[in-house]
């Protein structure tokens, strides 16, 4: 006796079945508009980005400096202690070359998302952003990069106030 008899043959529908009216359906677009509070730590982080600065938070007990900032240390489970100005440079700790969009359309030129460990934060600690002004094939883990900012008058207090990070000339 094998498990085969306990598999129910569910009914497979093809995309054509919708187009050609063989299967009935209904569609719905929920009105998912949200207004999220930025919160204490991220509110400050974004306000500093608008000024062209990256800031983190330090925990005096474990001495970690973290970015994105939060108002508590999740290791020590206590409030962390102070704001720390960080550099707008860092190191690529991982990256991808992405040839598709979220709705699976093909991109001719890849986006290069990367996690960038920010100089001045603890080792290996950073945030997600794009790389730019770089040959996609030349990107490597360990590459030193620097933020390219939007012009000051166009910044709005958002992660996109940094356009991307580009390689530092060595």
């Amino acid at each position: 006796m094998t498990m085969e008899q306990w598999v129910y043959p569910s009914v497979y529908v093809k995309e054509d079945d919708f187009r050609e009216g063989r299967v009935l359906y209904t569609t719905w677009q929920p009105r998912l508009f949200y207004a999220w509070d930025r919160g204490t730590a991220i509110g400050r982080f974004l306000a500093e980005l608008k000024q062209g600065r990256i800031v983190g938070r330090r925990c005096r007990r474990c001495r970690r400096v973290v970015v994105p900032p939060r108002m508590f240390c999740e290791h020590c489970f206590r409030p962390n202690d102070e704001w720390v100005p960080l550099a707008d440079t860092g190191t690529v700790i991982t990256f991808s070359r992405c040839y598709i969009t979220w709705d699976m359309r093909r991109l001719e030129h890849p986006q290069i998302p990367a996690v960038i460990a920010i100089d001045g934060a603890s080792p290996g600690v950073g945030f997600l952003h794009h790389l730019g002004e770089v040959d996609p094939e030349a990107v490597h883990i360990g590459m030193k990069v620097k933020a390219v900012w939007k012009p000051a008058d166009q910044r709005e207090g958002a992660i996109t106030d940094i356009l991307y990070f580009k390689p530092m000339t060595e």
């Binding site: 677009q29 949200y34 999220w36 509070d37 930025r38 207090g157």
Partner: peptide, 20 residues
């Protein structure tokens, strides 16, 4: 802090298609 108390606004690009 008070001037920073502005919300971040976004939407989810979700469309459901339901078979019966």
């Amino acid at each position: 802090i008070v001037t920073q108390a502005q919300p971040w606004v976004d939407r989810f690009p979700l469309t459901g298609r339901y078979t019966y």
